[in-house]
Amino acid sequence: MGFLTTIKAARAYRLQQKGQKDEAKKLYEEAFAEGLNDPRYNLAYALMIIRNGEYQKAKEFLVKHQKAPGMTQSQRVTLLVDYAACCFRLGNLDKGIDTLEQQFRKTETSLLYQTLGYLYVEKYAAENKPDFEQQAEAVEEPAAQETENGEGTESEKKLSPQEEWEAGLAKAEEFLNKSLEYDDEDPICLDNMGQFVYRVKEDKAGAKTWFEKAIAIKDSQIDTLYFLSRYDLENGDKEAALEKLEKAAAGRFSPLNYCNKETVEKEIATLKGAN
């Protein structure tokens, strides 16, 4: 890799910052083909293609560059968070969670609390809860291992799918509470707790307090605005809901948002058409 390769990467980064993504992508890929492996540019490029919805390409790129020389601990965490987001959007949520849990055992950071907390909400949301009764009917219970006296040991007893779910749910709630002990003014963690109460516990009234705390700290947070607009619509206040949705639509969406830009814009159009 020559000196000109680094200059090319720096130019790609500047173009990316200006929103000229196609030109930036071309230069980045030329630089990578020439041997560039700088964590700053690797992460910038990965983020750009993730925001473009190229999750498989980004995932493979991040795996290839996970041991780039000179990577800081902060950059390592960012890489793993981006990788987990790709796993989530590619339909392998458990892989994303496992990746971040492993990293969290090594170090606690705000970014890990924010991202892993959200992935827990996605995993345990009420709409994703399996039908355990149907599973029990479809799967025959395996024979329990026995000790010499004919009794199964506690350590050998396998949890049922429902017990595993409930244990994971309790762990997720404990983690979300811990995230707010770590920083009780983190708007993303507050929103995560709101979504947990709203989507997992299905306690809409209880969730509202968390969303209001989050919006008081960061009034442009997309998901918080979206969920608060649900309360406006339930109260028949379409104008207030529309205001929040339009503000959300102007934000920068990520793969870790509950709602996407298309969904929000479609709802805005529907509300305007109903007026």
Rank of each mutant, 00 (worst) to 15 (best):
M1H: 09
F3N: 12
T5H: 01
I7H: 10
K8N: 04
A10F: 11
A10C: 11
R11I: 12
R11Y: 14
A12P: 04
Y13P: 07
L15N: 09
Q17K: 15
Q17A: 14
Q20Y: 04
K21C: 08
K21S: 13
D22G: 08
A24R: 00
A24N: 03
K26D: 10
E34P: 08
G35D: 01
N37P: 00
R40H: 09
N42F: 07
L43S: 07
L43N: 08
Y45Q: 02
A46W: 03
I50P: 06
G53E: 07
E54I: 09
K59P: 03
E60V: 06
E60K: 14
L62M: 08
L62R: 03
V63L: 15
V63C: 11
V63K: 14
V63P: 02
H65G: 11
P69R: 04
T72Q: 03
Q75W: 10
V77L: 02
V77F: 09
L79A: 09
V81P: 10
Y83Q: 13
Y83H: 12
C87T: 11
C87N: 15
L93S: 12
I97H: 11
I97P: 09
T99E: 15
Q103L: 15
Q103V: 14
K106E: 15
K106M: 11
E108H: 04
E108Q: 15
L111G: 04
L112M: 10
T115Y: 11
T115W: 10
T115I: 06
L116A: 07
L116Y: 12
G117N: 06
Y120H: 06
A125Q: 13
E133R: 09
Q134W: 06
Q134K: 14
Q134E: 13
V139M: 05
V139K: 13
A143C: 05
A144H: 08
E146Q: 15
T147H: 12
N149S: 07
G150R: 04
E151Y: 14
E151D: 14
T153K: 13
E154W: 14
S155V: 14
S155R: 13
E156H: 02
K157S: 14
P161R: 15
Q162D: 07
W165S: 06
E173A: 11
E174Y: 09
F175C: 10
S179M: 00
E181H: 01
Y182C: 08
D183Y: 03
D183P: 02
L190Y: 00
D191V: 11
M193I: 02
G194P: 03
Q195I: 12
F196A: 02
R199K: 13
R199N: 07
K201S: 05
D203F: 07
A205N: 08
A207W: 05
K208L: 11
T209H: 11
E212Y: 00
A214I: 10
I217G: 01
D219W: 05
I222C: 06
T224G: 09
Y226T: 01
L228M: 10
L228V: 01
S229W: 01
S229M: 03
Y231R: 09
E234N: 05
N235H: 09
K238S: 09
E239W: 00
E243C: 03
K244E: 05
E246N: 00
A248N: 05
G251I: 02
R252K: 12
F253M: 04
S254Q: 07
L256N: 06
L256G: 05
N257R: 04
N257A: 08
N260S: 00
K261C: 03
K261N: 10
T263L: 12
V264L: 05
A269W: 12
K272H: 12
G273F: 15
G273V: 14
A274S: 15
A274N: 11
